[in-house]
């Protein structure tokens, strides 16, 4: 069973439907106790870093999410759910985030011909394309498993540290390759 953390950071319908397509039972919750007890945790998120952190604090979820990401259980951060695993984001004038990973999240520079947000399908490690929607990116570092290029920047599009996985793109909206990634995570 997979628990999806609901901290009022975007619509969870697509995430639920993707796991349903794989036959995986899910529970959507904002209860820290359920996150602590969960065998595997999905931490999605769309929106802004500051309000996401505010919501996590208000719901008492900060420690439960950090523990889930660091105690060896399978954990999957998606989009904003990946970005706030890092230590700090430039968004909203600068926000301290969860600090599970030590890197920084930065805003894409303004480059002619590159619209921000990046919306669409981009390659990960020069191979298959996944669906991205984002204005901020996580820098490269020892945590980088997947690398993607946009607006002249190479950024971390996927993290894989044991059973802690996180992706900037949306596997739940990335067609067959996205479902295969989720299947791989369910087996880890």
């Amino acid at each position: 069973m997979t628990v999806i953390v609901d901290y009022r950071a975007g619509n969870l319908t697509s995430v639920k439907l993707a796991f349903a397509a794989l036959g995986e039972p899910v529970e959507v919750t904002n209860d820290p106790g359920k996150v602590r007890a969960a065998p595997r945790v999905v931490f999605p998120g769309v929106g802004a870093a500051r309000s996401a952190m505010d919501n996590l604090r208000e719901l008492g979820l900060v420690e439960a999410v950090k523990d889930a990401a660091t105690d060896g259980r399978p954990f999957l951060g998606i989009c904003l759910g990946m970005q706030i695993l890092f230590a700090h984001s430039e968004e909203d004038g600068g926000v301290d985030t969860l600090g599970v990973l030590s890197g920084q999240v930065r805003k894409f520079p303004s480059v002619p011909g590159c619209k921000v947000p990046e919306i669409g399908w981009n390659q990960v490690n020069g191979d298959a394309e996944y669906y991205f929607v984002h204005s901020y990116y996580a820098e490269l570092g020892p945590w980088t498993f997947g690398k993607t290029e946009y607006a002249g920047v190479e950024f971390t599009s996927m993290v894989k540290q044991g059973r802690l996985w996180a992706c900037q793109f949306h596997p739940e909206k990335s067609g067959r390759v996205g479902l295969e990634l989720l299947k791989g995570w369910l087996a880890c």
């Binding site: 697509s14 439907l17 993707a18 669906y131 067609g175």
Partner: peptide, 8 residues
């Protein structure tokens, strides 16, 4: 449609 496809 949402149940049947996994693209936006």
């Amino acid at each position: 449609v949402a149940e049947s496809i996994r693209i936006p």
